[in-house]
Design a protein around this nucleic acid. Sequence first.
DNA 1: GCCGTTTTCGGCCCGACTGTTTTCAGTCG
Length: 577
Amino acid sequence: MVERNKKLASLLDRIADFLELKGEVVYKVNAYRKAARVIEALTDDIEELVKSGEIDRVPGIGESIKGKILEFLRTGTIKKYEELKAEFPEELAELLVISNLGPKTLKVAYEKLGVRNLDDLIRVIENGSLAKLPGMGWKKVDNIRKGIELYLKGQRRMFLGEALEIANYVIENLKPFATSITYAGSLRRMKETIGDIDILATGNWMEIMNRFVSLHRVTDILAKGETKSSVMIGPVQVDLRVVKEDEWGSALQYFTGSKEHNIHLREIAKEKGLKLSEYGVFRIADNSKIAGRTEEDVYEAIGLCCIPPELREDRGEIERAMVGDLPKLVKYDEMKGDFHVHSNWSDGTSSIEDIAKMAEELGYEYVVISDHSKSMKIAHGLDGKRLLEQVEFIKKLNKKLKNVKILTSIEVDILPDGSLDLPDDVLKELDWVTASVHTRFNEDATFRIIRAIRNPYINSIGHPTGRLIFQRDSYPADWDRIFEEAKKYHVCMEINAQQDRLDLPDYLVKKAKDDYDLKFVIGTDAHHIGQMRSIFLGVAVARRGWLERENLLNTWSLEEVERFIKSVREEKLKLKL
DNA sequence: GCCGTTTTCGGCCCGACTGTTTTCAGTCG
């Protein structure tokens, strides 16, 4: 995420909060919110866009907000924000994230009861004065109390992999009783983290709902009805909805989202005299239903081709679907190899033979064994001598293997000065070389990565941002410069498929593809053969990054990959001369 | 505040639920 964009977005968000508290018209508030989302999603620094004049073409940013952006770039803040901050306590706006407590209620509590922060709010709930306000009552106050409890617990999102496991458990157990059943929401869009799980089914609602709430792993039943039930499975909320067969497509479309995608879609429907809801597509004129049974029907009725769930974030996919020009995304079942697996030669627990066997089982043509290099002492990293022993070992093993080839490799450490942890005369013996940063996560890594990219034997950068989801942010880095250099030196970006990495993240994948036409490799970074199965998480990131076959080496045959490696090495040696 | 092969003004996504209402406001997804 571009740091400056993030700061600007949060400032605009806060202005929206204050305006909402002030009672401004909702459209004005929404305009600021939308602009904040748009700016946050930009992969280019907002200052660059202003300089180049491209800012005028960014949807959702008009004269007024553009003026505030200029002001922000000039002064580091926005006068309107400072004024509003003088009018309302900042802490008050923060309370808006509490469920069941909206701006209207909060405004009245502030004006009539002097509520300025969470402590004040709890106090007026306890002493009953909030319930006495006009339009309020004990039930509303009770719901706000529940909202506060949730807020204090700090709702944790979960990894995509965790959510999929739970969703699949529910679906497997309900499948025998449903005509159709699948997961929807951010899970179906394969977002990197998931809040709660939405499952959609058709069939006999009573049977399905009964089975659902009595699943073994259910720890709490929150609600049970004809169309919607909610349970807790451990700390995770799972919602199940049962819909009619002829509403399956529109319901699936609606519940898959994203919200932004759906809003944009409905605007387009409206322009065409249509109305889109979870119940179907209707002609506004006579309220007749023209689609709803399948998602394809729904999109088609609005004049679009069906958009893969991973793209539904309103980042240009709707415009592309209107002209029938969606990317042909890589598919989950077309992976022909894994570019990053550790063996028991370093810190992995599986033998190279077992890794080969697993690769065969997964239907691969090749697997890249890349252990750690020597400076990773904790991981028993390989020095030059042991690495060359491993290369000899693999050469012999390859002669015995029939269906799969092991490519020799190393995950060589990029040292603090940008040099590599192994000499070139060792690296040149390998089929593939991945270079990764494993130290000094707080320092800007741009020059280190660029120096590594310029090495003639490097093929890819491993987990390029170094982030750990929920745990550690990316180190600061100038991705434009890195991608530019990677393009010049034919270096691929890894999409690391470990569930807590997913690195490169989807938005940078899209940027690297769109702006620099880079190539990518998915590596599971497996330390045990079981983890090789998680490659689908990497494919999900690739799809969310709009990748097609030509962008992703894993979809290529062994022959294509070897040809690519050979030509790239020749090119790079030429550059060196 | 943004936006325009219906427009430079007058619109702005759709529906459900809840609670406090006697016709609707607030909140949510």
